[in-house]
């Protein structure tokens, strides 16, 4: 294992009943990489991402995170999830907590960070995403774009090694997509490892270093982004790009 092989996926298969959603997928994500995962709906993109932190349990195969098989029953998955931030399509901010508690609950309760220190960090991160004034708002008082930026900050509060994004802009009104993409772009530029399931082709092409095309449970194409979009090979990818670009 090379030092930069952060996540190794080996022969990952996921079935829902008789339906095979992921079919024997293998790939590696390196530290510092920003990878976009694109493909048609129902192609298994989200399931693939959710398998990486075991929100879905793989039917078979291995997922090595920093060399440790997280599918192994003996592995404490809670420990590994702390190192993998996740951002959801539906934001999933805790409705019963204000923004500050949304951000600080996990560091305080899980990592035992002192409250003042956690809040200091939350204030700094909120400032970075332009939402300093929202610390005491409740999620129900925020717009979708604001919620998603806060969801990103919530994941960052745990200082993860990698951030997983599950269609982070798909539930947003068009005028709010930009503000979230800007935050993600800044995050990518800061060197964070990211795996992003997305329909935003511009983000895939311009921000991510590598793009995967997932269709029918297979990785049909896997290349550096500029090459991926300039010289697609698989006929399915070509027809997909033709439709969405």
């Amino acid at each position: 294992m090379a030092a930069s092989d952060m996540i190794q996926v080996k022969n990952l298969t996921k079935k829902f009943g008789r339906l095979t959603v992921l079919d024997n997928i293998s790939t590696t994500f390196h530290a510092g990489e920003v990878v976009s995962v694109i493909g048609p709906s129902g192609g298994g993109k989200s399931t693939f991402l959710r398998c990486l932190n075991l929100l879905e349990t793989p039917t078979s195969g291995q997922i090595l995170f920093d060399g440790i098989d997280i599918c192994d029953k003996k592995t404490d998955i809670n420990l590994h999830r702390q190192k993998m931030g996740m951002v959801f399509q539906q934001f999933n901010l805790f409705e019963n907590m204000n923004v500050m508690r949304n951000l600080t609950a996990a560091p305080i309760k899980i990592k035992k960070v002192p409250k003042e220190q956690a809040e200091e960090k939350a204030v700094a991160l909120l400032k970075r995403v332009g939402l300093s004034d929202k610390a005491h708002s409740y999620p129900s008082q925020l717009s979708g774009g604001q919620k998603q930026r806060i969801a990103i900050v919530r994941a960052l509060m745990m200082e993860p090694e990698v951030m997983l994004f599950d269609e982070p802009t798909s539930a947003l009104d068009p005028e709010m997509i930009g503000e979230v993409l800007d935050v993600m772009k800044a995050l990518a530029e800061s060197g964070m490892s990211m795996i992003v399931v997305t329909h935003e082709m511009r983000f895939a092409r311009e921000v991510s270093s590598r793009t995967l095309f997932l269709e029918g449970g297979h990785i049909e194409e896997d290349k550096p982004s500029h090459e991926f979009f300039a010289h697609p090979e698989s006929p399915r990818l070509i027809s997909f790009l033709h439709k969405v670009l």
């Binding site: 999933n92 309760k109 899980i110």
Partner: peptide
Amino acid sequence: VDVGQMEAARSLGFKKSQSMTLVILPQ
């Protein structure tokens, strides 16, 4: 309570019981 609330809590590293008492039950 929306399943996303539990998933979000678990994705941060909360145990199931913690997610229940901190996030799910209050709602």
